[in-house]
Amino acid sequence: MSTHSNPAIERVVTSGTFSLDGGTWDVDNNVWIIGDDTECIVIDPAHNPAAIMDAVNGRTVTAILLTHGHDDHIRYAGEFRELAKAPVFLHKDDWMLWHDVFPGVDPDNSISDGDTFTVAGATLEAIHTPGHSPGSVSFHLSGEGTLFSGDTLFQGGPGATGRSYSDFPTIIESIRTKLLTLPEHTVVRTGHGDSTTIGAEKPQLDEWIARGH
């Protein structure tokens, strides 16, 4: 099989629940697959490991990257890890959330700001963007003008900060100093819902701050 000159980016939408602080909500999650015909990286394999493996379609999964430790993003990561035979990466500041779901078991690796992951000739760079959770990470695929923002930045505003371990001033600082500095054409592929761009979100920063206080 031929390989793409640029990595393909695929989205799988899965459905399930998110639980925190005694509440449970129905959610649809975006699962992102980046790769070529032979290998790929999977970001946030939520809810439905079998459907995600169908999308992987026999390719080698080189890494499972988690944008943060909330249970809708990680609850099925252990099962997907077994199916894909691939290591799980999660920022150390969210390991307490992982341990809530998987007591006594650690992720395979931690993620630090600036870490890079290469797949299909392209490089993803980890950007530590705390606020939605302490260990939230966005992944910048600069060669493709793409950012995988997890639940840090959405179309129309920052991720939620009303629950445990989250902080509104921190997420605003992360977005302002680390994400809105990226090129305005950068496509933001989010953890839930529709994609947006840095240019579309940047003018709204002051409005978010006013709304958040």
Results as ranks from 00 to 15, higher is better:
191 G>L: 01
195 S>Q: 12
55 A>S: 13
161 T>L: 04
14 T>V: 13
190 T>P: 05
180 L>E: 05
173 E>Y: 14
203 P>M: 11
149 S>A: 15
109 N>D: 06
213 H>Q: 15
42 V>H: 01
16 G>T: 02
177 T>L: 12
117 F>T: 03
189 R>V: 12
207 E>V: 08
92 K>H: 07
39 E>W: 04
185 H>M: 10
56 V>H: 09
56 V>E: 10
175 I>Y: 01
142 S>E: 13
46 A>H: 12
170 T>S: 13
15 S>N: 01
22 G>L: 10
148 F>K: 08
38 T>Y: 10
68 H>P: 03
62 T>A: 11
213 H>K: 15
107 P>E: 05
29 N>Q: 09
85 K>L: 09
71 D>M: 12
145 G>R: 07
187 V>F: 09
24 T>L: 06
36 D>F: 11
160 A>V: 06
16 G>W: 06
140 H>I: 01
168 F>D: 15
3 T>F: 04
176 R>M: 13
131 G>W: 04
3 T>Q: 11
113 D>G: 00
106 D>S: 15
147 L>M: 13
19 S>F: 09
179 L>K: 03
152 T>I: 07
174 S>W: 08
89 F>Q: 11
82 E>Y: 00
116 T>Y: 01
60 T>V: 10
209 I>R: 06
127 I>P: 00
141 L>H: 10
66 L>T: 07
169 P>Y: 10
134 P>S: 08
128 H>S: 14
19 S>I: 03
106 D>L: 14
188 V>P: 01
59 R>T: 10
108 D>I: 08
35 G>A: 06
122 A>M: 07
212 G>K: 13
8 A>R: 04
85 K>P: 00
117 F>K: 06
115 D>H: 12
155 Q>I: 02
